[in-house]
């Protein structure tokens, strides 16, 4: 079973929830935890485990073969992303604009643009007890998160025997990286906070999840600050809140040091317990 942990707004506690939940559930179950926030992956700071595998990750871009090129310009014409320019005496490729659609390469009449690998990031696989932790990080200056997320999910599928609970720590927002991170999830947990920012961004995330026909619920973090508008919104829209985690400076301090929280803060553990019941369908 795949559970994605997502949020519209950043900094609402996705990583805190994902890492603590992974650790708590691993007391009874096999867990795969994947950090899909490839731009700023943080889960690894909380799950300190032994690295068992590492691999560079690539994307495919056209490489120009000067001797075979006739400068016909078809490559530039077929590229919808302006990633390839025909200067008449030279072909320029902009790798960061390329979406790896292969159109230029496969439609080139003289096969002068064979696709080649370009490094985009690194995937790492760690193991600790019952937890397999997979992290993928985008190299600095690389723009496209989505292909990295897709590759990470492929890797998880390759190591899974479909019996584990797979937790996906998703990137923030409501655009393409979130879609990619949540599209194969059986359930999505949206983490938010009881403030107008939390409410506004939850609304966007809910819209995205509804569009994708996802089974989703809400965890309200930092409960006690702000106001009751998020609760009212969920009630009105028939969205289930499966846990309310109290606002606590102690949790913030533990988090700041990279420590897990649930074994030290009882109210947090109780919230995890509610979430566990939801996940296991009890």
């Amino acid at each position: 079973m795949k559970i994605a942990i997502a949020s519209g707004k950043g900094g609402t506690g996705k990583t805190t929830l994902a890492t603590n939940l992974a650790s708590y559930l691993s007391e009874e179950k096999q867990i795969i935890l994947a950090d899909l926030d490839v731009e700023e992956p943080n889960s690894g700071l909380f799950i300190r485990a032994e690295k068992i595998f590492q691999e560079d990750r690539y994307k495919m871009i056209p490489g120009w073969v000067e001797n075979d090129c006739t400068y016909c310009g078809i490559c530039q014409e077929v590229c919808n992303f302006n990633a390839i320019i025909n200067l008449g005496t030279h072909i320029l490729v902009y790798p960061e604009l390329c979406h790896s659609c292969y159109a230029c390469s496969e439609l080139c009449p003289t096969a002068a643009l064979p696709m080649q690998k370009q490094k985009m990031g690194v995937l790492k696989h760690y193991k600790k007890g019952n937890i397999d932790f997979v992290e993928s990080r985008l190299d600095i200056g690389q723009e496209q998160a989505v292909p990295r997320i897709a590759q990470t999910l492929d890797y998880i599928n390759s190591i899974s025997d479909n019996k584990e609970i797979i937790l996906l720590d998703s990137p923030p927002g409501t655009s393409c990286p979130v879609i990619e991170a949540t599209k194969d999830a059986d359930k999505v947990i949206l983490v938010t906070e009881p403030t107008p920012f939390g409410l506004h961004d939850l609304g966007l995330a809910v819209e995205t999840m509804q569009k994708m026909n996802k089974d989703f619920t809400v965890v309200l973090n930092r409960f006690g600050v702000g106001n009751a508008d998020v609760e009212d919104y969920c009630k009105k829209n028939n969205i289930r809140i499966i846990a309310m985690i109290p606002d606590s400076r102690q949790v913030a301090e533990l988090y700041s040091r990279g420590e897990l929280v649930y074994d030290k803060v009882d109210s947090f553990k109780q919230s995890l317990d509610s979430i566990k019941h939801y996940i296991l369908g009890k």
Partner: peptide, 20 residues
């Protein structure tokens, strides 16, 4: 930024980008 392990980690990454 904020003084958390995540905050420091992300600061360093985003700063590497800013430097470019």
């Amino acid at each position: 930024t904020e003084p958390t392990v995540s905050g420091l980690h992300d600061l360093k990454r985003v700063y590497e980008l800013v430097k470019k």
